[in-house]
Design a protein around this nucleic acid. Structure first.
Lengths: 115, 115
DNA sequence: GCTGATACCTCATGTTAAAAGGTATATACA
DNA sequence: TGTATATACCTTTTAACATGAGGTATCAGC
């Protein structure tokens, strides 16, 4: 799905960390995993995910290693670090607070259909 | 509250529109209203709200007018337009989908406390 | 041989929130 | 009188970010 681009900002890295908290995956796999887990709603492009992964690695939230995938080819896998798990736990807490705060402002509006 | 700055991106304009959908307000008033309605969680600065208001006005989602406030002084008031209400309705729909999508990826993680 | 999917990457673009700075008025307090 | 604080408007700079487009390469299916 195509959201307003601004809406997509912020949660990307946390969503990637959440996927890696389940198991190590390579970049392309992460994109598919997010799409599947979100019910086809979050469709990140490679131009979003690869730079995010590099930034996460620079922050030591993930580390990467090359390994042979099931199809026998070399793939670059990413694994969440201890520091990354701490970050993810905090991010989930923040995300809950933030989304509830936004909801509480949006809530109870009467927007007549006619106008 | 101080969220990770990236998290704040995206919903700002929609939150402003939501506040204006209740009644016309001036900039400073909007900041306080968002803070109050979000339970002190969303604390936007003027450097975020004023540029956002100008962008909303350029998009014709709000219009502004000068009027005398209760204290007898001239204040710049903003009112949501018909176009802005349409935008807000759509934004609320998108926000719900988006936040649920993020939640569904974040959900069910076992993050052990020790690591 | 060609297409499409997989898989990695980078660069340019536009948007954005935040912080810091600027101006001005009014109130409260010493 | 002087000062601090809150109100109220604004702009500029900075850094981060998602996106789209571009690039390269391999492999399976037709």
């Amino acid at each position: 799905m195509k959201f307003q681009p601004e809406l997509m900002k912020g949660a990307t890295k946390n969503v990637i960390l959440a996927v890696l908290a389940r198991e190590d995956q390579h970049g392309y796999q992460i994109i598919r995993e997010i799409r599947t887990r979100s019910g086809e709603l979050l469709e990140y492009g490679e131009g979003s995910v690869y730079p995010a992964l590099h930034a996460l690695e620079a922050s030591k939230f993930v580390k990467s290693y090359w390994a042979v995938a099931e199809n026998g080819r070399e793939r670059k896998y990413y694994a969440i670090t201890v520091k990354g798990k701490r970050q993810l736990k905090n991010a989930i807490k923040e995300w809950k607070l933030y989304s509830e705060a936004v909801n509480s402002v949006m809530k109870g509006l009467r927007l007549s259909a006619g106008e």
